[in-house]
């Protein structure tokens, strides 16, 4: 802290003597290298795990699949055993992790679990053609893990798994293999999943069951929902106006909610996604005018005007949110 500045403030009688002494004594307080050391530790863990992965991959012929699977399973089990032993148990409130290793070990265990299941499915085809089951089982385990040990990172993993599972269940395997993601079942699955996740976020918040998970649910839900809505609009060309109305409605609800909860983040993403939708409609309408120079000019002018307009809108709502305080 800037001592001369506070000396000046003390002279102006803005801070009293005790407070000035507090500030002066700050100079002698120890500096925190908490995050620096954590970052180094994390970097080290990433290096070791990546290197191990490469080593195993290169030596797979000498090791054999069985040995490898046993090693992965053993380490994974070890991780979970450690976590269960050290865990503070389940609680509806936020549970702080017991020591510095806990979070990393849990994450490692979960990643190894996914590797293990993917491996046996790939090598021995254990689930046969029921790919849905291969995604469903780890998903359930991950959700239980995330809730029991209170780990937001694992929760994100399980939501990603849920999305994969929903995508797989929604499509015949053939389409997935052809990598054709522009098809209605996937889009509808996305819509349902997104809406579902947003709904879950409200439930956890109101029932106060791990309320700090709400943001993760809502974040995933909002992005999936908006992207699916935009995909819906571009896919069903002939009824895109109806899809746009749906997008605008969802956008409006999110907008209201962002204002209510004073969330700058959701305000911004809602505005940007809705803006993409509006721009799509405008370009579509302009393209009806044929390929003349006039629609091109109009389109460019639209982007300039809408850009400036949205800037003004955001500045305006920034002011309102600030007035209501919050983070």
């Amino acid at each position: 802290m800037d001592i001369p500045l506070f000396t000046k403030l003390a002279e102006e009688k803005l801070i009293n003597e005790q407070e000035f002494k507090n500030i002066e004594s700050q100079k002698d307080k120890p500096l925190s290298v908490h995050w620096d050391l954590r970052t180094l530790l994390y970097l080290g863990i990433i290096l070791v795990t990546t290197a191990t992965g490469i080593l195993i991959y290169k030596n797979i012929d000498t090791l054999g699949h069985e040995v490898l699977l046993i090693i992965i399973a053993a380490v994974c089990a070890g991780c979970f055993f450690y976590c269960i032993k050290n865990s503070k148990g389940y609680n509806n409130e936020k549970v702080e992790s017991p020591d510095i290793w806990f979070d990393y070990v849990l994450l490692l265990g979960c990643l190894l679990l996914l590797t293990f299941i993917g491996y046996i499915q790939f090598q021995y085809n254990i689930f046969g053609n029921r790919w849905g089951l291969a995604a469903f089982i780890p998903m359930v385990i991950l959700f239980i893990t995330a809730y029991y040990f209170d780990h937001v990172g694992v929760l994100s993993l399980s939501i990603t798994n849920l999305a994969a599972w929903a995508g797989i269940s929604a499509t015949p395997l053939r389409i997935l293999k052809e990598n054709d993601f522009e098809n209605p079942p996937i889009i509808f699955a996305g819509l349902i999943l997104g809406a579902g996740l947003v709904a879950v976020s409200f439930v956890v918040q109101h029932k106060n069951i791990k309320a700090h998970f709400a943001f993760t649910y809502k974040n995933f839900g909002a992005h999936i929902l908006f992207i699916s809505l935009i995909a819906l609009m571009t896919y069903f060309q002939n009824i895109y106006i109806i899809c746009f109305v749906l997008l605008a409605l969802v956008g409006f609800l999110f907008f209201k909610n962002a204002l209510k909860e004073n969330s700058f983040y959701f305000l911004v993403i809602t505005c940007l996604y809705t803006y993409i939708g509006i721009s799509y409609v405008v370009i579509n309408l302009l393209s009806l005018m044929g390929f003349d120079m006039l629609p091109i000019y109009l389109g460019i002018i639209y982007f300039i005007a809408s850009g400036i307009g949205l800037i003004r809108l955001l500045i305006h709502y920034n002011k309102i949110l600030k007035r209501n305080a919050g983070l």
């Binding site: 080290g44 863990i45 990433i46 290096l47 070791v48 795990t49 290197a51 191990t52 490469i54 080593l55």
Partner: peptide, 8 residues
């Protein structure tokens, strides 16, 4: 990488 990671 392995050695570096372990040292880190």
């Amino acid at each position: 990488m392995l050695i570096g990671g372990i040292i880190l």
